[in-house]
Write a protein that binds this DNA or RNA. Structure first.
Lengths: 217, 217
DNA sequence: CGATGACTTGAACGCCATCAATCGCTGTGG
DNA sequence: CCACAGCGATTGATGGCGTTCAAGTCATCG
């Protein structure tokens, strides 16, 4: 469901742009800004290590996170010249950078490249469309259950969901408050659907995915 | 803000596929289904006359409308084989149909066509990204104000917004109830921001767009 | 005319937000 | 080593915004 989880897309893009000259790596400490909304989109990015959040802000500070980007994910891909989100490192993060120009150059002569861009954009679109349904019509328990199931397929070690982001980040992704996220998680724990591994409460063992799926609808 | 409002895209697509053989028209009475979620995407569509809504459903009937499609708009464009929304005619509607196959055929040899598809997909993406912020973080007044401003640029005669859709449709687009939509509109009317033209309350004169913009943030 | 459907308006409820206190872990400095 | 500040998370209490339920208006259409 999340953007760019299909390995085909990743290898496609990296294959096309495998030339080390156009690639470089950069590291960002926890909390660092990678790019800002409406800034020039000079690069696109792939997460090597760590995690990234993309968000939009209202003038009074209300925040909506549009996506979390985990290792392997590509983000910051714009068709226009400007970024439409602000991207920040959730944890200490290593990114691979690709110059937008070089991408454009390849795309000009290689229709397969444009195809690859279209596929990635469509994957993003699909994720956001599903998220719209969650934000518009699901209640708080359904939102948190959906989030756990989404993450369960992505940041799982041996049946453990290791969340890199805070409760506030989760809340701003789900369009609720951090307290409501916390209450929902406590509720699921009490129902035996999950278990916390560590004291920071960011490692979660999903004991009953079917139960969560049922709650999510 | 809405998908495919840029005239460039429309003419692009229609130019590429201007051959009458691959085009045909169809009319749909008010309320008719055009295609369903997860059905085969055999055609893409352009609104000639009327209006269309695209929505997703939860199992218990809760509905989220993702977009309204007005004359000139293209919709039903999928990269995969299946539609991701259900599309229905809001009013009596005439559509231009283009076979997906023929689109694919052109796209295979014409990189500009793939480019055009990418642009359209990006436009869609941009719209739903903004809508995510509305659904996740705006209150009811802000949502309705944003809706009026969005429609103000699209279905306006001489400063009159003629809404083809019901309060329920608006509500399901904005992630609130029809009563809340109605209360917000009454509120704006009482504040002197707008005026109803007819008795059905679907023709709205925006008297103070700045006031609405302020409410929307 | 009576029935139907869209819309508005009122009243009460409930879910989630807000405000606040507490817990536990981490790290820092005396 | 311990005290304590600081941060993230949980939990409790209260309130408010939007939902739900309901009644009433108005236009349309048989």
């Amino acid at each position: 469901m999340l953007p760019n989880t299909d390995p085909k897309n990743k290898s496609r893009l990296l294959g096309e742009l495998g030339d080390p000259k156009v690639n470089s790596k950069a590291t960002y400490p926890q909390g660092a800004k990678i790019f800002g909304e409406a800034e020039q989109a000079d690069y696109i990015y792939q997460v090597v290590k760590g995690a990234v959040r993309s968000h939009k802000l209202l003038s009074d500070g209300r925040r909506q996170i549009g996506a979390f980007h985990l290792p392997g994910d590509i983000f910051g891909l714009e068709n226009g010249a400007l970024h439409r989100f602000t991207a920040e490192a959730i944890a200490d993060t290593t990114l691979r950078l690709v110059e937008r120009q070089s991408l454009e150059r390849v795309a000009k002569t290689d229709p397969a490249m444009v195809r690859a861009l279209l596929t990635m954009t469509t994957d993003n679109l699909q994720h956001v469309e599903n998220h719209m349904l969650l934000l518009g019509r699901k209640n708080s328990r359904e939102r948190v259950a959906a989030f756990l199931l989404e993450m369960n397929g992505r940041v799982t070690g041996p049946s453990v969901v290791a969340l890199p982001m805070s409760r506030r980040d989760i809340a701003d992704y789900l369009g609720i408050t951090l307290e409501t996220v916390s209450r929902a998680l406590s509720d699921f724990k009490q129902k035996g659907y999950l278990r916390f591994v560590d004291a920071t409460q960011r490692q979660i063992v999903v004991l009953n995915a079917d139960g969560l799926t049922e709650i999510d609808q």
